[in-house]
């Protein structure tokens, strides 16, 4: 099992949702929900710490693979995250994505934390900074209105793809 203390939080996004912690947990872990707010990806995970975690394209191809590091329904879900479905990305070190769910008055505070084990360049962090607000705004809309939010997905910017290519060539994480 991965040592999660080696990962430092880099991107944090907080959103409040009019729903129960159980409903938010279901939205994070059930493919019928994730397909409607996560750019069409189906989450596929074994419901236990140490279990397998994956994100799949609508046609079943692998996009992200990882491991369930913490499975504590309905409070905390933490998974390792390696994008395998795009050129070069599979050679980057995996990151850690954690969701914390806390009841807050009539609503739930959902905190997403993306953590990295290396000094990841800003241009690579931009990918998550662009994606998470769309994904989590969509999750909130789906739970509160039962309708998906159409934000589209213009894909990552060129400087992001360049930064990934450069990092894979130089492998700075091997230096420390």
């Amino acid at each position: 099992m991965v040592d999660s203390t080696k990962f430092k939080p880099k991107t944090v996004y907080v959103i409040y949702i009019a729903a129960t912690p159980e409903k938010v947990w279901q939205a994070l872990t059930d493919p019928a929900f994730s397909k409607q707010y996560f750019f069409g990806f189906a989450v596929d995970m074994e419901p236990t710490t140490g279990g397998r975690f994956r994100l799949l394209w609508p046609d079943g191809r692998l996009h992200v693979s990882g491991e369930v590091v913490e499975w504590t329904p309905p409070r905390r879900l933490s998974v390792t995250w390696l994008v395998e479905g795009m050129k070069d990305f599979g050679e980057l070190p995996q990151c850690l994505v954690s969701y914390d769910i806390v009841a807050s008055g009539d609503a739930v505070r959902l905190t997403m934390t993306e953590s990295h084990s290396w000094d990841v360049p800003r241009d690579i962090l931009r990918g998550g900074e662009m994606g998470w607000p769309k994904i989590l705004s969509g999750l909130k809309s789906l739970l509160e209105t039962r309708k998906p939010l159409v934000t589209g997905n213009e894909g990552p910017p060129p400087e992001f793809m360049e930064a990934v290519k450069r990092a894979v060539a130089e492998k700075p994480w091997l230096r420390s």
């Binding site: 959103i15 409040y16 807050s104 009539d106 505070r109």
Partner: peptide, 21 residues
């Protein structure tokens, strides 16, 4: 800000704020 903007989003999409405090 995340509280205020989450409430604003709920108000515009559902007609109700997500929560009061």
């Amino acid at each position: 800000w995340p509280k205020v903007l989450s409430n604003l989003k709920s108000l515009l999409e559902t007609g109700d704020a997500a929560f009061q405090k």
